[in-house]
Write a protein that binds this DNA or RNA. Structure first.
Lengths: 225, 225
DNA sequence: CCAAAAGTGTTCCGTCTACACCCATGG
DNA sequence: CCATGGGTGTAGACGGAACACTTTTGG
């Protein structure tokens, strides 16, 4: 291959993943202790370097698969972080990606194997390098999207109750909302379908289980909470 | 310096700038003919490679200054673009930045010197590599921000008429709005101040000139159009 | 029978939208 | 005097917010 641009310096590029989950009414992200120098032992997002043969998105998907064993996760780019000294080792530019998963889909043994765990956003420790900035930006993106895009369903089981959906919404926004108004808005969206199934695990009475119908959503994508 | 991460491959990183201006009722961006291989002669955004001593934001500011001679421009990161084959030369990851400038501040001779010109968004040609994607994403970001953040004022002179402000708003959104409703909303924002000055260049009667008071905005940042 | 969560409607208020005419001036 | 863009108010529709009680059932 002909080489162009010879005179310019190259840098390492990595991807770092902000993986959100929702459990026990709390929004959580996956973090682990860094197992390489520099910064060994510090809390950190899970990440990896971008290979020469893969796009940024490919790299993020690979890293996510490595960690979770899951494919086709909902994933969005958060942004590129490129301060010169952001990595104490050497110059590394990192592209942050945000992913949403249903915590039940993520095997606890895989978590232990990779040394990561779910930590509530409210109890987020100080993270390696600029990872707290990445988390903050990802969380901001989520807050902006939660009421106009159907992203919640990536964090919930296929079948979920309206109370779960509402608690998730409240956890992301950081404020509580009126139950009747919330349900009124849900009822407007035909692609959130009530099933005949009842979840009896959280109350004596039991709560109807709902399902997100993506096909119906794609037909008329009007999401508003 | 100790070297870590030795086994990973490094790549070139560039910044590309989507520079918006507003003139004759049209939203325009600065593009030029590419003056290096590969792709010499194709329409392209203005960009440059990131040096080892500068952050991504620094690089974007440097490139913007090189091109326009202007500092402290309004500038926001659009995102990182990293498909393997996005650059036909060799692997280059590019971080797109969007900047807003007042076209009057940009010397025509500098434009000629750098071989760039203002092109209306509506007449955007096919651009080099994935630059059209970058433009589309930057435009989307602008549409989202134009009605809830005071970004318009970066595209207008210090003193502007309400008609100018409205035309700009319409150009960004791509739809026209009612004049009286628009002005009602402007009147709600105390930081958009009417001056005693009159612009007589666009009508016989003359139009009042307004000014954006940033201090007042910072005190109570409630922008809504 | 009681605790605990699920489920359900109405009213009010504020906001957004639609809409048409007079003004000031230069040529 | 007329053409051109600047400037102004109101009424009706709509959507969002506030608000409290009944239902179900396992223990």
């Amino acid at each position: 291959m002909t080489t162009y641009y010879e005179e310019y310096s190259k840098v390492l590029v990595s991807v770092d993943c902000i993986i959100f989950g929702f459990d026990e009414g709390e929004l959580r992200i996956l973090i682990g202790r860094r197992n390489m120098d520099p910064g060994r032992g510090e809390w950190s997002l899970y990440g990896g370097f971008v290979n020469s043969t893969e796009s940024l998105d490919d790299a993020a998907n690979r890293v996510l698969f490595q960690l979770t064993g899951l494919r086709n996760l909902y994933m969005r780019q958060v942004g590129a972080f490129g301060n010169v000294d952001r990595d104490p080792g050497e110059r590394v530019i990192s592209v942050a990606y945000c992913a949403l998963i249903n915590v039940n889909d993520y095997d606890v043994r895989l978590q232990e194997q990779h040394g990561v765990k779910w930590v509530s956003l409210k109890e987020m420790p100080r993270l390696y390098s600029d990872h707290n900035l990445m988390v903050a930006k990802a969380h901001k993106m989520m807050r902006e999207k939660i009421s106009c895009e159907p992203i919640s369903f990536n964090l919930l089981p296929n079948l979920f109750t309206l109370t779960q959906l509402q608690k998730l919404y409240e956890a992301v926004c950081g404020e509580s909302v009126d139950k009747r108004n919330f349900r009124k808005r849900v009822k407007e969206m035909d692609f959130i379908e009530k099933t005949e199934l009842i979840d009896k695990t959280t109350s004596r009475r039991g709560a109807s289980l709902y399902r997100f119908n993506r096909k119906a959503y794609d037909d008329s994508p009007n999401f508003k909470l």
